[in-house]
């Protein structure tokens, strides 16, 4: 019977909840008589068994390692050992930074079928098909894996609802396979809580473009950002005019909004230079009078309207 194997993850001993989304993705293609096993590698894996014992999981493989450190070599050895022992048809992991380090390595070494950043899984005529985005989210691609007995996929986060509900899986304990590791954990560096203007560190940015027109209007948006609890950013012409410090400029000429999760672009047309600094942000809201401004092509939400009118109305809610 074909088995699906999910590789769940922990970081410094804390369970990574994105693994529940990987489990949900695995469940989406689990047949009635299929089996779903979830492996977790940790210094004390028993402490994490409860986290992955959700509905639909048949077995938890608790793998004891020497430490909680992330070792790509060790994860690859785990995947190899489990693939050998279990012969799963499908191995699933969350598309997080840890998986970036080990999943392609394991797939290339072991000759698996492979797809990363997958948004949907299904079988078509008995063949596994994985859907992912392409060309900077402008297309969808359906991939299949001809001739591959084992397929490894990593699942995009925030697509599948995390698997939940109580399950009663059997628990299998095992020791992590012996392997040479070439990396060693030294420590952690928390994101800096920089005072003052911090475009790279800010998780919420309201940004203004040339549509703002004059310097005193810029002040109005500083006030709005202050009320919203956001950092004010700007496109190049605003900083070039000396209306805002260069530390607020987002883009190739300027700063990268590296940690931003919500970016509201007001009156920003969305030139390539500007997009360079923000197009990766998960939720982009574009406000622009021109419905064809290129900023809309990367936005999750669009407001066709005047930035000043929207700003004045928005203030009423905060």
């Amino acid at each position: 019977m074909a088995e699906i194997l999910v590789i769940a993850e922990q970081r410094d001993g804390a369970f990574r909840s994105a693994s529940l989304e990987a489990i949900a993705a695995a469940k989406s293609v689990k047949g009635g008589d299929g089996k779903l096993a979830v492996a977790i590698v940790a210094a004390d894996p028993d402490a994490l068994v409860g986290d992955v014992s959700v509905e639909g999981v048949d077995e938890v493989i608790a793998i004891k390692a020497g430490s909680n450190d992330f070792q790509p070599d060790l994860m690859e050895a785990v995947v190899a050992a489990l693939a050998e022992a279990r012969q799963p048809a499908l191995i699933v992991a969350a598309h997080g930074v840890d998986a970036w380090s080990y999943a392609p390595v394991a797939a290339a070494k072991l000759g698996f079928g492979f797809a990363s950043d997958v948004q949907a899984l299904r079988y078509e005529d008995g063949e596994l098909v994985a859907t992912r985005a392409g060309y900077a989210e402008k297309v969808r691609v359906d991939l299949d894996f001809p001739g591959k007995e084992v397929v490894l996929v990593t699942i995009r986060t925030n697509v599948f609802d995390p698997a939940g509900g109580a399950g009663a899986p059997t628990v299998t304990a095992m020791d992590a396979p012996a392997c040479d590791v070439s990396t060693a954990h030294v420590g952690w560096k928390q994101p800096e809580d920089a005072g003052g203007i911090d475009i790279p560190g800010s998780d919420f940015i309201v940004s203004i473009g040339r549509g703002v027109g004059d310097e005193s209007k810029v002040e109005q948006f500083l006030e709005l950002a202050d009320q919203l609890g956001a950092t004010l950013g700007c496109s190049r012409p605003i900083a070039d005019n000396g209306w805002l410090p260069k530390a607020r400029q987002v883009g190739q000429s300027g700063q990268l909004a590296a940690n931003c999760r919500l970016y509201i672009a007001m009156g920003v047309s969305g030139s390539v230079q500007h997009q360079w600094g923000m197009k990766h942000v998960e939720t982009i809201v574009a406000v622009n009078t021109d419905p064809e401004a290129s900023i809309f092509s990367i936005a999750r939400y669009g407001v066709v309207g005047d930035m000043f009118e929207i700003a004045e109305e928005l203030e009423n809610h905060f």
Partner: peptide
């Protein structure tokens, strides 16, 4: 390759939800 493009298509609606 480890995968093959079976098909490619534009998503059904544009990415931005217009408010």
């Amino acid at each position: 390759s480890a995968s093959r493009v079976r098909r490619m298509y534009a998503p059904e609606k544009g990415q931005a939800e217009i408010i």
